[in-house]
Simulated scan of single mutants.
Amino acid sequence: MLVQFTRWFWGSVRFRIEGSAERFFNHCARCGIVLWGMQAGETPGAWIRAGQYSQLLGCARSAHCRLRVEEKRGLPFRTYWLRRRKGLVTGAVLGAVILTILSQQVWCVQAQGLESITQEELQAACREIGLVPGAWRSSVDPLQAEQQLMLRFPHVTWLTVNTQGSAVYIELSEGVEKPDMDTWKQPGNVKAAASGQIVRLEVYAGTPVVNVGDAVTADQLLISGVMEDPYGNVSLRHASGRVIASTVREFSAQIPMTETIEEPSGQIISRRSASFFDLRLPLTLTEEPGEGWEKESVRTVLRANGVELPVSWLEETWREVSVRERLLTPEEALEAARAEVERQKSALKGLTVLNGKESISQENGVLYYTLHAQCEEDIAVETEILVNSPN
């Protein structure tokens, strides 16, 4: 089997002898030329390795014989046509070399299980630790990458990094962030965040120092963290609770009667580029426009069998916008002012507006809006007891 493969690899030539075959074979034996499949009779001939056929010409002249090639076999004759296409051979060799090099690199990094963590945040963390497309696979340590990513995202319950071929897969599960237990260990009071009259009192821990119906001022003590048992022993605790009070709030907003709007002018510029790993190849000669343009981009990543390849296509669409001033109607300005006041009310904890009175005025191109509201809200705010304070 090995002999046959060697003959096929180097190529073999079957030739016919015209003249005295015995004399020719004797000359070949003296010269140490190896032949096989020798035949005598009416059509004498033999097989020889293709590279040694030229050595037979001297033996044929000495034996007064002529040689005729009858058959050619083997790899050199199968690939003979490639000798006239050197560019094709060079390209195939370079392609094999490039493919071998690329197979040793990371082509893509894919993540599963993202919830509060965005894809951009995870990609930024991967770039910091060198886990990016184009990195050498030999430099990727999955265990070390897991530890580094866990340090960057402490609220992740578990995280694994696996390599499969030229792809890196990150799987993670996000957990609920643990509360700060140290806060509950610190002794503290509950004070009033605003002035008002208490309508409901819910004490979870501590000693209440006010009652329902009492009027309180801002920063007044509501629930004390100082606890005293029946024997007169005093201890400090972290007070907590809800104190619902009737309060008076004033919300205001100032809305200019003119607004700046942007409108498309209709002029559009398209730019295209291709990316190979971190190398960006522009496919258009159009330069990026300056200010006054809005950009929309769509990136298409090539995939094979569900795996992202390090090749992507980016198409950018730039639209020119013109800026102009528009005069608001009183109704539009009032609606914007009310929306701003609603945002202010939503920022307050547990606020309920019972009734309110609006005040509207317009001066120097500005709408002034004020809402005087009767509210109910949780005015409890926890504060720390400074045990070591000199006061």
Rank of each mutant, 00 (worst) to 15 (best):
R200D: 14
M227I: 12
E377A: 02
S116E: 08
S12P: 15
V3D: 09
R14I: 01
Q164H: 06
I48T: 06
E335P: 06
V190L: 00
D219V: 00
R319E: 03
L354V: 07
R73V: 13
I33K: 12
I129P: 09
R152T: 11
F153I: 07
I117H: 04
E358R: 04
L386H: 13
L279F: 14
A245W: 06
E342T: 01
L114R: 09
L114M: 05
A125L: 00
R84V: 03
G206A: 05
S195E: 15
D378G: 01
C59E: 04
G19Q: 01
L302I: 08
A339F: 04
G292N: 00
F277S: 02
F5H: 14
V248F: 05
I244F: 03
P310A: 03
E171G: 06
T90W: 10
T217N: 12
E228D: 05
Q220T: 02
P208R: 11
A192V: 09
I379W: 05
R249L: 00
V109W: 04
E288S: 11
Y53P: 02
A60C: 04
M38T: 14
N162F: 08
S20Q: 11
V199I: 10
L354S: 09
A339W: 05
R152K: 15
A192G: 04
F24T: 02
T6W: 15
R14W: 14
R78E: 15
T329A: 03
Q148S: 11
F9P: 09
V168Q: 04
A339V: 06
Q104D: 02
V203L: 12
R280H: 09
R326A: 09
K191W: 03
R343P: 02
R237G: 15
W47V: 07
G58K: 12
F25C: 10
G165N: 01
T284K: 07
G365V: 07
G113L: 05
S139R: 12
K357P: 07
V89D: 10
G241F: 07
G241V: 08
L285C: 03
N355D: 11
L201K: 11
V176F: 09
S20T: 12
A373L: 04
V248E: 10
S235F: 10
T370G: 02
S224K: 13
L57P: 12
T370L: 00
L57Y: 04
A29K: 11
E171I: 01
W8D: 10
L151I: 06
W136V: 15
E18A: 03
S389L: 09
V34W: 10
V226P: 05
T43H: 10
A29P: 09
C28M: 00
W47Y: 10
L367Q: 08
L131S: 04
L67C: 06
Q344W: 11
A92L: 06
R7W: 14
T157Q: 05
S235A: 14
I101G: 09
I268R: 12
G241Y: 05
M150R: 07
R343E: 06
T100F: 09
R237S: 14
R200K: 14
A125C: 01
M38K: 13
T317C: 02
E71M: 00
V226Q: 15
P289V: 13
V3W: 14
D278W: 12
W318G: 08
R73A: 07
I198G: 08
G32K: 06
L334Y: 02
S246K: 11
G356Q: 04
I269P: 11
S361G: 06
L56Q: 07
S139H: 14
E177K: 03
